[in-house]
Amino acid sequence: MDKIIIAPGKYIQGAGVLARISDYVKNFGGKPVAIADDFVTGLVGGSVSSSFSANNCKLVFETFNGECSRQEIERLQGVCQSAGADVLLGIGGGKVLDTAKAVAYYCKLPVVVVPTIASTDAPTSALSVIYTPEGEFSEYLLLPKNPDMVMVDTQIVANAPSRLLVSGMGDALSTWFEARANVAASRNATMAGGAPTLAAQTLARLCYETLRTDGLKAKLAVENGVCTQAVENIIEANTLLSGLGFESSGIAGAHAIHNGLTRLEETHSMQHGEKVAFGTLTQLVLENAPLPEIQEVIDFCRSVGLPTCLADLGVTDVTREKLMPVAEAASAEGETIHNLPFEVTAEAVLAALLTADKLGSR
């Protein structure tokens, strides 16, 4: 199998870069449409619009309705066509970014991704996670290329609630463990379309090392609204290292378990990365990883405030009957949990969920 690594066309990170966004976007087109929710539009809309006005370019803002669903993607396709857009911007969190990537793909437009939080590794990937309008996982949309540009204003990210940065750490936490599992399996292509490269594996490991080194320091800095070097490092880990690491090294159990957990209504208020963090712990149990390694992950999660048990995800009624639908969804045919280097059944996932819950509750 050929080794393949993929990445966005350009990655820009720094404090205050959003004020210069039009200087970069003008290389892609002169009729931009931006997708953002009402909150993000109020937060950065003035600065972004001013940047385009300074370059004599009119920007159209369109409100994102909150879910990366097929219905929302189709609605926004119509908006872009009506506006005659030649470049699309997605500004905000993971779901609006995934929506922008999908809309740009169907409209055949270049896409510029502007995360205002570092809560997932969605910004850099050639992937959109599609949900139902009710918020349940539906499917992965694999895109033919990564975003043309990713721009991260680290001061804006630092001003966001610390829970969002921590959630990004939960998503990034899975990167190395899922990458490692894919290399051990060495039979399935990654989302890049081939075998993992040494570069992608190294980025995945660096992601985990950066979380352990700077995670707590970054959380404390963001709680005070400041952007330190630790914050810069964690934003890069959450966004770039995790994004390239998962996409070109592969995903496995943690994200499949996240998908299963979306079947529980209690978890719908939890962040993606919070569910992935518990999914990582469950994957390690499923793999029968050494107890010191499992404890290391639990200790990290506790240090930054990530869930280590089902109660932390709002699930207090922990029974086999309640968790079996989660296990069945996580181990459904075609799920990424089958990238693990052994056969996985719903019964095995259920056992791992119950055991991980007890380990994380101790």
Rank of each mutant, 00 (worst) to 15 (best):
G45E: 05
G78H: 13
L18T: 14
T308N: 04
G250P: 01
N146H: 09
E265Y: 12
T190Q: 02
A184Q: 15
L216D: 08
G170T: 01
L142R: 14
F177H: 15
D171V: 05
R212M: 15
C57Y: 13
L164H: 10
G46Y: 11
G170R: 00
G260Q: 04
L359M: 13
L76E: 14
G193S: 06
G46Q: 10
Y208D: 10
A218P: 00
A311K: 12
T202I: 11
V231R: 00
Y24F: 14
D86R: 09
D98L: 07
A158F: 05
L310S: 08
S242Y: 08
H338Q: 07
F342R: 07
S50M: 15
D312Y: 04
A158D: 05
D153G: 08
V166E: 01
H338D: 05
Q201L: 02
V276R: 08
A351C: 12
S119V: 03
G9A: 04
S186R: 14
P32K: 07
P8A: 00
L173M: 05
S242F: 07
L97S: 09
T99R: 03
G30F: 12
L353H: 07
I117R: 01
I4V: 09
L244H: 11
R263L: 14
V33T: 09
R20A: 15
E296H: 12
A34W: 02
L306W: 05
E266N: 13
L241S: 09
L97D: 05
G243M: 00
G16H: 12
Y106A: 11
N238M: 01
L165E: 04
V17S: 11
V129Y: 04
L165S: 02
T210L: 00
D37Q: 09
A221N: 02
T202M: 07
A158T: 04
A158Q: 02
R20H: 13
A126V: 12
A254P: 02
G92K: 02
N339S: 15
R320T: 14
D299H: 15
E209P: 11
T116S: 00
D86W: 08
V226E: 03
K3L: 15
I5P: 09
M151H: 11
A356Y: 00
A181Y: 06
Q271S: 12
L340R: 06
E223A: 01
T316E: 11
R75E: 03
C301Q: 04
A181I: 04
G14T: 04
S331D: 06
L97N: 08
P341Q: 05
A346M: 02
A352P: 09
N65M: 15
M270V: 13
V349A: 03
A230G: 10
D37I: 11
V231Q: 02
T63P: 08
Q283A: 00
